[in-house]
């Protein structure tokens, strides 16, 4: 079985985003970029399924600028077999990404597509569900455990009150949540080896997908700032404050 793993290049998890002064977006110039953390978990899960003998090949895909190659090389260094970059400098919305991924899936015929539940830049949480809809496949979102058994996959999902388990017919889409696994670091020899793994470059037009945005961003602003309050000296002073608030 082949596994398709879409990955996104985003602002690094540890960088605090700054809104541009002119309100047109977030300043990404000279900011450290990395693979979306949920996508790293997706790559790791695919590799574990390959190590278990369930998967035979892992294809990493990214839709983004030329620099997204670095993100794909990271996936290859972790253990993906080959990569496809759908190169565009435009911002591509989840719906268009899902359409591109559907077109790729028609060629690659994966048994599973595993991707992050959301990207930490636009926080949309849509691409996996949209891809499942377009492919007419079942979806196991916010996964904390994935087990393939024959022509089905059992997915344990993180839901509001706890956990939920669903059984899905393959091919299926799985989106990852934080506790699914802990992604490995690529070793130096594997980083070297990744440089010679195949990476194909395509364009959205190759898949006949129009990436014109449906949503227009009118303005981006800083959230209202909360200012620091007071510090109290000891527990007694805190108790007094809680009493003022009427909760003690």
């Amino acid at each position: 079985m082949k596994i398709l793993v879409p990955v996104k290049r985003v602002i690094d998890y540890n960088v605090k985003p700054r809104v541009k002064a002119d309100g047109t977006g977030v300043d990404l110039a000279n900011v450290k970029m990395s693979m979306n953390p949920f996508d790293e978990i997706a790559v790791e899960e695919a590799i574990r399924l390959k190590e278990k003998g369930v998967a035979t090949e892992i294809v990493a895909v990214s839709v983004g600028p030329a620099k997204a190659q670095e993100t794909l090389r990271t996936a290859l260094a972790m253990g993906a077999d080959r990569a496809i970059l759908v190169q565009t400098d435009d911002e591509v919305e989840p719906l268009a990404v899902a359409k591109i991924l559907k077109a790729i899936a028609e060629v690659e015929q994966p048994g599973l597509v595993i991707l992050g539940k959301q990207a930490i830049d636009d926080d949309s949480n849509q691409t996996g569900q949209m891809l499942a809809a377009l492919m007419g496949c079942p979806q196991g979102t916010f996964a904390s455990a994935v087990a393939v058994d024959g022509d089905a996959v059992t997915v344990t999902r993180e839901v509001d009150g706890g956990l939920e388990t669903v059984k899905l017919a393959l091919p299926a889409i799985v989106t990852t949540d934080l506790r699914l696994n802990e992604p490995r670091y690529a070793s130096l020899p594997n980083i070297m080896k990744a440089k010679s793994k195949p990476l194909a470059t395509k364009s959205p037009a190759d898949y006949g997908v129009d990436t014109a945005p449906r949503l227009k961003t009118l303005k981006v602003s800083e959230p209202p700032v909360r200012s620091a309050g007071i510090k109290v000296a000891d527990v007694d002073a805190l108790v007094a404050k809680l009493k003022e608030l009427g909760i003690a």
Partner: peptide, 28 residues
């Protein structure tokens, strides 16, 4: 194209929503 996690309705087709973990509020 869906609008996720809407914070306010600004017009018949205009909304605000959080991005970057709430560090940037987009009017879309």
């Amino acid at each position: 194209m869906q609008l996720s996690d809407v914070l306010s309705v600004e017009g018949p087709k205009t909304f605000t929503r959080p991005t970057y973990a709430g560090n940037a509020i987009a009017t879309v």
